[in-house]
Every structure is written in structure tokens, then in C-alpha cells.
């Protein structure tokens, strides 16, 4: 395939995904349109989508790492995580309400968010580099969402779709990682006051800092550096739970505090 058609394909796939936002419902998987879509091509679609949002006035405020649990990797038949971009339009304040028109088929995950005080440039970034570059950590809820109908995704689909990013909420208060063993931080996820599941930092690749190190090294392949001040969602500590209008979600973390969010009752606003 020559360069022109490759660029056209990336453009076409980015527009296909954008149809989900325009129509307010999921679209068919990219891997149905092109079963041979590669991971690298999928990241090109993601980068183009982000580029369009930057042109529309959005700013990149961080990154997220997905597919960090053994269960999720098994589900998609992969052996490594993926990543997406966080934009300022995805930020929801702790305790705020989310209009349901902002989401398609949301699921909620509890994660540990890192905020960096130093740039992290791959390759060969280690967990210790990550800890040294970390300004503080926060408890977070990530509202993952898919532009692909019924979450019928393969690895390439979710990568092209910005790693199924939706919205995110940061809670607690900034906490230095001094004396914290992030791998052993316990977490309880509630929906409407009922415990949905529990988790621990180690659920994310054994240690949340391992996820951030993976990200820094992966981004090197694309010439990207993690910047001081960026927010990094390091990966889910337990299984994602589907959200419906009116649902309230809360996650309580050992040491870090709590974070909560509610989906609006009103479906069409």
C-alpha cells in the first residue's frame, strides 16, 4: 500500500469512529472493515483523532494505560497493555454529575493516578525512575467508553478508539508516594452503595509504577515524552462495572482517600 492510501485509510477510520459521537451510538468495529489492521496503524488512527481534537481547541492533559490486568489481556488475547490520551474535555470533578449524553456505553474502573514532577522519556525507564519522577498520586475513577457498538472490540479497535477512553474523575488529596507500597494499596468499588468488587494496586501489571514505566517506554516508539504535570491513569485495580443513568459510583482507597461520581438521571438533555 502506498503512502497516500495509507493516510486515506487512517482518515477514513478516524471519521468512522467519529460517527459514533455524531450519531450517539456505537459503530461497527474497524477490524470488521479491515481484518488486517495492525497495531501500529491503529495507533495512527488514534493520533489522528487526537490531532483533530487539538485543532478543535482541546489540550492534552495526560495519558492512560489500558489492558493492564491479566483478565483483560486474556479477554482480548494480548500480552501487553495499550495507551490513550487524556484531554481536558474528559475531566469531571470529584462528586460531580455526568450528563448521560456525554457517554455511549460507559463502564467505571478505579485506578491510581500519577502526577509527574519531572519528564519521563523512554526507552529504558524503570519503576524506580517513575517513582522518582512522581509528584503525587490520587485515587481516580475512569469512565471508559467505546465508540464500537456493544464493546465488540479487538485490540486494534480499542487502540484506534483512544484506548476506549471516556471521562475521568480525580479525588482524594495529593499524596506523596513516600512510605507507600502502591502494589498493596487496597480499593473497594461501590455502585449505589453496594460493594461491586475489591482490588489492590498489584492488579495493574503487579505494580502501578510498572504500568507507567511501560507507557514511557512505549511512547518512545512514537517520539512522545511524558511531561511534568501530566496526569497518568495507571490501570484498573478491579473489573469495570457498567453504569446506567442515575447510578452513583464510589471508590475508597487505603491511604489515598475516596473519589465518586454520579450519572445524571436525565438521558436526553
Amino acid at each position: 500500500m502506498n503512502t497516500t492510501t495509507k493516510a486515506e485509510k487512517t482518515e477514513k477510520f478516524a471519521e468512522h469512529l467519529d460517527q459514533a459521537n455524531i450519531q450517539g451510538r456505537g459503530v461497527s468495529p474497524l477490524t470488521k472493515l479491515d481484518p488486517n489492521l495492525t497495531v501500529r496503524e491503529a495507533y495512527q488512527v488514534q493520533l489522528l483523532t487526537i490531532q483533530k481534537q487539538l485543532e478543535a481547541g482541546q489540550k492534552i492533559v495526560g495519558k492512560k494505560i489500558g489492558l493492564t490486568s491479566v483478565a483483560m489481556q486474556n479477554l482480548l488475547g494480548v500480552d501487553q497493555p495499550d495507551y490513550g490520551h487524556l484531554l481536558n474535555g474528559m475531566v469531571i470533578e470529584n462528586g460531580e454529575e455526568i450528563s448521560f449524553h456525554k457517554v455511549l456505553q460507559p463502564k467505571v474502573e478505579a485506578e491510581i493516578a500519577f502526577v509527574l514532577k519531572k519528564d519521563l522519556a523512554g526507552p529504558r525507564v524503570t519503576e524506580m525512575d517513575v517513582l522518582q519522577a512522581t509528584d503525587y498520586v490520587l485515587p481516580a475513577l475512569e469512565i471508559v467508553d467505546s465508540r464500537i457498538a456493544d464493546w465488540n472490540i479487538k485490540l486494534q479497535d480499542t487502540i484506534a478508539d483512544n484506548a476506549s477512553s471516556g471521562l475521568y474523575v480525580l479525588g482524594g488529596k495529593p499524596l506523596s508516594i513516600d512510605k507507600l507500597d502502591l502494589a498493596q494499596v487496597g480499593m473497594v468499588l461501590y455502585k449505589n452503595g453496594e460493594i461491586m468488587n475489591t482490588g489492590v494496586g498489584a492488579a495493574a501489571l503487579g505494580h502501578p509504577a510498572t504500568c507507567v514505566a511501560w507507557l514511557a517506554n512505549k511512547l518512545f516508539e512514537y517520539g512522545i515524552t511524558l511531561k511534568a504535570g501530566e496526569v497518568i491513569l495507571s490501570g484498573a485495580l478491579s473489573a469495570a462495572i457498567s453504569g446506567e443513568p442515575g447510578d452513583h459510583f464510589q471508590a475508597r482507597f487505603a491511604h489515598l482517600g475516596e473519589v465518586n461520581v454520579r450519572f445524571s438521571n436525565k438521558v436526553d438533555q
Binding site: G186, V188, G199, V200, A202, R252, A254
Partner: peptide, 27 residues
């Protein structure tokens, strides 16, 4: 201690097999 938030990992031969927090026990 906040026993409901105690993070627990169970490993066999160094590999994590399962995990949870104290709240998994009746809250």
C-alpha cells in the same frame, strides 16, 4: 488500620494468583 481497605495479594511461586481488599469479607 482500616481493615476493609487492606490490600491483599495471594501468590504462588512468586506469581500473583488473586487479590482483593478487606471489604471482600462481608464489607
Amino acid at each position: 488500620l482500616e481493615l476493609d481497605l487492606v490490600g491483599v495479594t495471594l501468590s504462588i511461586n512468586g506469581e500473583i494468583k488473586d487479590f482483593g481488599a478487606g471489604a471482600a469479607v462481608v464489607g
